[in-house]
Write a protein that binds this DNA or RNA. Structure first.
Lengths: 252, 252
DNA sequence: TTCATATTTCGATGATAGTCGAAAGATTAG
DNA sequence: CTAATCTTTCGACTATCATCGAAATATGAA
C-alpha cells in the first residue's frame, strides 16, 4: 500500500491548470454546471467531469443535482480562503495578449471574492468605510461602529440579520491583487448583495470581475466619497507587464 | 508558448509528496540543510536539491549559504499561513503503523506552527489566557488586555518589543488539528520563546512536535490553571483511526 | 415513444515530471 | 596540498495522470 501525504493530496487538487481554472471560476461562491466549468477551463466535458469527481471526493466542492444538470460550488468559506491564500503566493500572471491584458485589469479592478467584493474597488470601499468611521480596523479584523451600524442600515443593509449568521461577521480578507485587506464575512456579503440590488455594480458573464455602473460611480462618490475610476492605462500604475527575470533567490 | 495558470503553479509546489514532506518539516520556521530535508522526505540529496531549487525560484523558501551547507527555510509567514490553510482542507492521515500512530498523536498534542505553539497544548494555552482575561478574542483576532500585559511581563515576556515588530501582534491562527484558534503573531512567537527558555517545552529532533517537560506541566498548572496531559489512548478521544468510507458527496 | 441535451464511464495515448546514478563543483578540515 | 563532506548538474528511465474518443446513462422536451 502506498504512503499518502495529506498536504500533497490537498494541493494536488489545485496543481493542475484545468482544475485551477475551474476553481477560480468557482471562487465567486455560486453554483456552476459541469459543462460551464469545462468551457471555462477549455477542456472537454468528460475531462471536466473527471476533475470535478476528484474535487468533490476530497470535499473541496459540493454538487447538487437538479434535473439533468449538476451544479457545483465550493464546499466552504474555508476552501475559498485557502485558495485565496494560495493566490497571494502565486506568481504574477504573464500577459501575452490584449484580451488577457483587459481581463488582468478587470479582475484587479473589481471582482467578487467568494461572496463579497474585492479588488481595487473592494479595498477602496473598505478603506473609505474605515475613514468614515463606519468600520474600525484593529489587528486583523474589522469592527462595525455604532455610527457605522446606523449608516449601513440607512444604506439598506440588514445588519442584525448579518450578525445572526453563524459565521464571521466582519472578517479581514487579504486581497491578493491589492495586497491589502478588504472586508469579508457576513457583513461583506450583505454589502455586496446590496450593491448588486442597487445596481451600483453588475455581475459579468463568465468572469468574477464585476462592472461598476455609472450610477454606481455616482453613488460611491456621494455616499462614500469614493472616486471610482478604472484606468488600466495609467502609465504610473502597475500595467501587469513584468520583465523576464531569473532570480536565484539567495540571501545574504 | 504555453499558457500558465499562477494558482496551479503555486499549488504545484506542494502537490508532490516529497516536497510536501519537506515543507512540513520547514513549517517549524527554522533553517534546515538540504540533506536534512532529503532524509526527512526519504529521497536522495540530488532529488531534494531539485525540489528546493523549484521552491526557492517560486519564492516559497529562502536559502542562505553558510560554508558548504545551504540552509533553507520558509520565506514568509504568509507562506506558512497558506500551508496551514491547506492542511485544514487536507484529508486526515491514514494510520498504518505504531510509529505513525505515535507521531500522529505527538504532532497533535503539541507542536510549533511556524514560530508559535500549536496543537492541543497551543489551543489550550490560548483559551486559558482568554479565560484568565489575559487575551480577549473578538471576531478573528486576539487583544492583549492591560491585565494581560502585566501578567505576561511578569511571566518574563517583553511585550513592548513584540508590539514593535513589523508584523501582526496577536493574530488568530486556525489550528488544523484542533479546528479551533490558537495565538499567533509576534506575541505568540514571544510566548513560544519564553516557554523554551523556561524549559517548559523542549524541541524534539526531526519533528515539529514538542515535548512538555515535567516542569512545564507544573508550570502550566500553577500559572495558567492548565492540566496538560498527553493521553493518546483515551478511548473517548479521537484515536485518528478512520473507517474506510466512500463518499459520493452529493447534496440534497 | 423518440429525440436532444447533460453528464459520466471506459479505455487508450501521450506528455509531464519525479527519481536516481554518475560526476562535477564548492568548501572545510587536517 | 589532499581528503572528506555537502550540494548541484546532467542524463536517462519510468510512472503517473490529464486528455480525448466512443459509448453509456440520465433527464427533459416534443
Amino acid at each position: 500500500m502506498k504512503e499518502t501525504v495529506p498536504l500533497a493530496e490537498a494541493a494536488a487538487l489545485l496543481c493542475e491548470p484545468s482544475r485551477a481554472k475551474m476553481v477560480q471560476c468557482l471562487l465567486d461562491g455560486r453554483f456552476h454546471t459541469a459543462t460551464e466549468l469545462a468551457v471555462y477551463a477549455g477542456i472537454t466535458p468528460q475531462t471536466a467531469s473527471h476533475h470535478l469527481y476528484k474535487m468533490t471526493e476530497c470535499n473541496l466542492v459540493q454538487v447538487k443535482k437538479n434535473g439533468r444538470h449538476r451544479y457545483y460550488r465550493l464546499s466552504s468559506a474555508e476552501a475559498a480562503q485557502m485558495i485565496e491564500s494560495l493566490l497571494c503566493i502565486a506568481p504574477p500572471e504573464k500577459i501575452r495578449s490584449l484580451k488577457q491584458f483587459d481581463r488582468y485589469h478587470a479582475i484587479r479592478f473589481a471582482r467578487t471574492c467568494y461572496d463579497h467584493l474585492a479588488g481595487k474597488v473592494g479595498v477602496a470601499l473598505t478603506e473609505a468605510m474605515r475613514d468614515l468611521a463606519i468600520l474600525e480596523q484593529r489587528e486583523n479584523c474589522f469592527y462595525l461602529t455604532e455610527k457605522g451600524k446606523l449608516c449601513l442600515q440607512e444604506f439598506g443593509i440588514d445588519v442584525t440579520a448579518a450578525l445572526k449568521k453563524r459565521r464571521s461577521f466582519a472578517r479581514c480578507c487579504l486581497d491578493w491583487s491589492e495586497r491589502r485587506y478588504h472586508l469579508a464575512g457576513s457583513l461583506g456579503h450583505a454589502i455586496l448583495e446590496r450593491l448588486l440590488t442597487l445596481e451600483w455594480i453588475r455581475r459579468l458573464p463568465h468572469t468574477r470581475a464585476v462592472q461598476v455602473t455609472e450610477e454606481g460611480k455616482r453613488g460611491f462618490s456621494q455616499v462614500f466619497g469614493l472616486d471610482v475610476r478604472n484606468e488600466p492605462f495609467n502609465p504610473i500604475g502597475d500595467t501587469g507587464i513584468r520583465p523576464e527575470v531569473n532570480r536565484k533567490g539567495e540571501l545574504s
